[in-house]
Amino acid sequence: MSYNSIVLVKQVPDTANLSGEVMREDGTMNRGKLPAIFNPEDKVALEVALQVKDRYGGKVKVISMGPPKASDVLRECLYMGADETFLVSDRKFAGADTQATSYVICKAIRKVGDYDLVFAGRQAIDGDTAQVGPQTAEKLGIPQITYAEEIVDLQDSRITVKRRIDGGHEVLESPLPVLITVIKSAATPRPFKAKRAMAMKNARSLPELDRITEANSLLNIEDLKEEYASNNLYIPTYMVDDLDVDPDRCGLAGSPTKVHKVEYVVLEGGEHENFEPTKKGIGDLVDKLVHDHIFG
């Protein structure tokens, strides 16, 4: 029996590798300078889905919601072996919290359709909330398995998954369809396939094709779309009108949580006593700590 998977991926700023030019002199961060990367655990989710495909057959489709630039990670998915990718992108989706995000993603999943498994990373490194997975599962009306580290078995319409819990693990058996969020240890993402990368490097989403037509008034977007699609290079793009959504539940407007205030934390020169990194300096510090009964 074969199984179709839908994988949810996100492009995120690489918060783990802050380079010199990201930090401004005043200690604040220049977000624009952060490189954008494939959210690491989402890449693991894609790998798990591809392993299911390798073993049992079926299709792997990938959905990403984000700005046009998120097409980059979708191309990476194609290079790794995804069958089809979909970009969900519209200004009306911007500023969404996890509730509004999961609402739109749920609608996109319904539109893509025909799935047995939905995979996603446990969380994205830009927010670390781990909320979009479970909230999407709830909206789809399907069960969820979070913190998954291994697919133990897949038979007929039941899947057995080992997941991490506080201080241990558990093995769960669930009917399909189910949404599974995976942790880093679940799999090691495969490298790009050179042949696929060559073949798919010109794949383009709608906003990317739009940009080409803007630069060249002789081109017509519909013709261009058709041309790319006929070469299997069109990344289908869903905007607000393409999905069965209530615009009031999308983006910032549809988000119950709002950012009230953002404060850049600028550290003031805190008062502290310096000790030299020498035998004498450290000896003095230890003497002081002992004298002050800090060691108990």
Binding site: Q99, A130, A137, T146, I165, P256
Partner: peptide, 23 residues
């Protein structure tokens, strides 16, 4: 914000249309 809380809270927030902030 435990393994249990992070599995449960988003599901409940989704169902009840509540706002939820993590950590």
């Amino acid at each position: 914000a435990t393994f249990v809380g992070r599995d449960l809270a988003p599901r409940v927030a989704s169902f009840t249309h509540s706002g939820l902030t993590a950590d």
